[in-house]
Structures are given as structure tokens and as C-alpha cells.
Design a protein around this nucleic acid. Structure first.
Lengths: 234, 234
DNA sequence: GTTAACAAGATTGTCAACAATTAATTATTC
DNA sequence: GAATAATTAATTGTTGACAATCTTGTTAAC
């Protein structure tokens, strides 16, 4: 549904910068756009059926979020985060997301909790069906949903950026088949939501984020190899 | 030094989008650009001595950070935050900055602490000399410095955005003469730094942020009035 | 005298052509 | 045959002109 290729057919609705940015965000989260991939302006123009100006604006916005690397006179590439950047991303997530959890637990209505339950159901289904793209996307979306429940646009934007960058980090350093999140840890979090335990939810989030980060620390030396492969297929 | 007017003289160095964005950031922090001010493209072109493209890119970036409000076919205006947005900004600051404090205390070298001491000296001087612009700028800069000491680019960007938006919020809801920060609270924080007390520093930051927010809560009803004034001089 | 319609001016949005830089290919030399 | 130099192709960066939209000021009608 939110797939770049599918949207490449010219549609009746015109894309604004924000829609283009969102689409690329999604493609990065789903790991369809991997680190190092070149995003040439002409391709994107064709893909989205818009002029070059829109594309350039979108790329600028993505670059300001560290999703895209703009090299002057050379073009735009999906960012290839370094280990240091990965460290900073996880540090930021640990700083922010536990507090989002607390706020979300505080403000979640019954409806919200039902919504989260639905979402976890979908996550499980995608995982069982082996729909990897969908599974990754939904597991990322879970974190953004918490910021929505906390009713904080600023933090929601931050989390969105951080989740997307995490996908890039896993694409760089993670084992090939690893998902972004363990869905069972999301379940534990939801349990804490139901029982309205703020501190427990915050703690669960921290350990959850630590588990995600641990996936990449083990394979940290793979970086150089990935970098070379990336250079070749360019 | 970092004044829009002064830079309006055409210089030898050409401005990139980022420099323009930074300059406008600073002008907003210093409350030289107040909420609702129109930023017409032609004026900015003249001011920075660059083409319209650069200006439009800069405005787009500022809009993506909620510093500027882009209205299609009507132009760019310095954002006029609502009370709800103000609430979210402070909530985000309380979520992030205490953790930055902890990290900064952990990682601050003696040199860093000396640097902070210097900075506080400058803050005091500006305050005593009655240089309000400088005082506001430095008090905002203090918070960004902590993120620098914590060595986290992501968080530094976030704080910069939040500090700038805080300046807008105070411009909207604060009493006319109020500064963004009480410099004495910054001193208390530095004391905690010297004694390497993470938790105390984090606590001090929370109360510090609460004090800043309290400045605006008392005058919350002024908003409508401000809005009207803004409409008048528009 | 007030309101509504209309026209002039100014500002923003978009596009296409051109310039500049980089990457790739070919030619040349040792 | 390998390495370097030069030319060609492709992509990005920039500029200027034009179109669309909104604001402002004027005129006319009620």
C-alpha cells in the first residue's frame, strides 16, 4: 500500500513535498531503500510524476533529518550511518521514548488501548505470514503510535525520525533477517499499559531499546564489508 | 555579530541554506524576529544577497522545524505558537533535557566545565550591561552547550529547535521584559556539574524548565490580545 | 455612507533552459 | 598492455521568465 513502486504510476492527485517525504520514509523503514542507494532526481521525478523542484525540496527535508545524504554536484544517497551515529540514535531513543511511554500510559483511553491491541494483532499476523516488509513497518509504527497517544507532535516527529534511522542502522549493521523489534516485547508493554503502570512501561521500553541495539553491536565489524558491496553496485 | 541587519550588507562569502537558517534561528532566539513577522522572499534575498531558491529552501527547512509558518500563495511568517503547542514544547524539553544533563555530567571534562564557567560569566555580564539580546542568546546557548558536551548531534538539533521555539512562546505569552532563563539557575546546574551529581543536575534542569514554563502560564490569556495586535500591524 | 464588484499591483509557485560539475568513455603515450 | 590524458555524456545547480494567486485600492451601485 505505501510502496514507492506502486505509487510510481501517475495518479490523479499531485504529490506535495510532505507526501513524497513520507513515502520515502516508509520505504526506508521497510528497508526497500537500503543505505547507500542513490536517489537520482530524474528517477524520483518519474516515480512520483512531479517536477524536479518538488523532488529537490523533498530531498532537502530528508537530508535535514539525516535520512538522506546530499553530496553537492554528486546527488542524493540514502544515509549510511556510522557506528557513532548509531550510538547517538539509540542514546536519543533511550532518552525520549521511556518518557513518551509514561505520558502515553497516563493519557491512553480505553479506545487507544484497544487500538494498540489491534495493532499488535496485525504485527503478529504479518510476522506469521512472513510478510517481512509489513512486519518491519508495523513494528516501527508501534513506537510512533505511543507518541500519538501521548499527544505530542514534536515528540512524534522525533520518534519518526529516530525509528527510520534505526531501520537504516539495522540495514547497515544488523544480521540480514533481523526485524526492528521483537513483537513480544511490544506485548509486554501493552500489558503495562492496561495496568496503568508508568514506571514499568518506561523500564520495558528501555530494555526493549537495549535489545534492539544489542542486535547491531555484535555484528559491528560487518560495516566495512557492507560498505564495499555498496560501492560496487553503485 | 550574529544579526540579520548587519549581515544584510553584501559579503564576499556566499550563504548556503544552512547559514541562512542559522541566522534566522539566532534572530528568533534573540527575539528580533517576533511571532507573526512576515518573511517576504524578496526582502530575504536582498538581506542575504542570494537568489530566491536559497531563500525558499531555507524557509522550507525552518517550516519543517515549526519556526516558520508557510502559507501557500501568501508567504512565510514567523510561527505564532498556540498554548497547546507551547505545552508540547515544554513537555518535550522536560523529557529530553534532564537526560542530556545526566549524559553531559557523565562526559564533561575539566575543560568543558571551565568552558561552561566562562559562558556563565558572559551571561552575567550581558545581563548586567543590560544587553538583552545577548543575554537571551547566551541563555539559550547554554542549553545547546549541554547537548554538545553530551556529544549527541541528534539531541543537539532537537534542543536547538526547542530552545528557539521557546523564544517564540515567550514572545507570544511572556511578559515583555522576561528573559528566557534565570542565569542563577544555570549557576546551580554548573555546581552540580562540578560535583558530578547526575541526578541532581537532572532535577535542577526540570525545575529550571518548570520555572520558564510558569512565566507563560500566568499570562496565558494575553494570547488573544497579542494575536490582535499582530493582526493590526500586519 | 456602506457594501460589493472590479481592476491594478505585488508576491508566490512553477517551469524550462542554461551553466557547472562530476562520472564515464575513448584515445594516446610510454 | 597499463596508465594517463582528453573528450563526451550525464547529472546536478542556478537563473530568469512566466503563470497563478492573493492583497490592495478604486469605482460604482444601492
Amino acid at each position: 500500500m505505501s510502496n514507492v513502486a506502486e505509487k510510481s504510476t501517475v495518479q490523479s492527485t499531485n504529490f506535495g513535498e510532505n507526501e513524497i517525504v513520507e513515502q520515502i520514509y516508509d520505504a526506508v523503514i521497510e528497508q526497500q531503500l537500503r543505505p547507500g542507494t542513490k536517489l537520482s532526481e530524474s528517477s524520483l521525478c518519474e516515480a512520483f510524476g512531479v517536477g524536479r523542484m518538488r523532488i529537490r525540496s523533498a530531498l532537502l527535508l530528508l537530508a535535514s533529518r539525516n535520512i538522506v545524504d546530499l553530496q553537492s554536484n554528486r546527488g542524493a544517497y540514502i544515509s549510511t550511518p556510522t557506528l557513532e551515529q548509531a550510538r547517538q540514535v539509540f542514546e536519543a531513543r533511550r532518552a525520549i521514548e521511556p518518557n513518551i511511554c509514561r505520558l502515553a500510559v497516563e493519557r491512553a483511553t480505553e479506545k487507544h488501548i484497544a487500538c494498540l491491541e489491534d495493532h499488535l494483532e496485525n504485527e503478529r499476523n504479518a510476522q506469521e505470514k512472513g510478510d517481512r516488509r509489513q512486519a518491519i513497518r508495523l513494528s516501527g509504527r508501534f513506537h510512533v503510535m505511543l507518541a500519538e497517544i501521548a499527544v505530542n507532535h514534536v515528540m512524534k516527529r522525533m520518534v519518526k525520525e529516530l525509528v527510520t534511522r534505526t531501520s537504516l542502522i539495522i540495514g547497515m549493521f544488523g544480521a540480514p533477517g533481523t526485524a526492528n523489534c521483537h513483537e513480544d516485547e511490544h506485548s509486554l508493554l501493552l500489558q503495562a499499559f492496561k495496568e496503568r503502570r508508568q514506571d514499568e512501561a518506561a523500564e520495558l521500553m528501555i530494555t526493549h531499546l537495549n535489545h534492539i541495539e544489542m542486535q547491531i553491536d555484535l555484528t559491528s565489524d560487518r560495516r566495512e564489508g557492507v560498505d564495499l558491496v555498496k560501492l560496487f553496485k553503485n
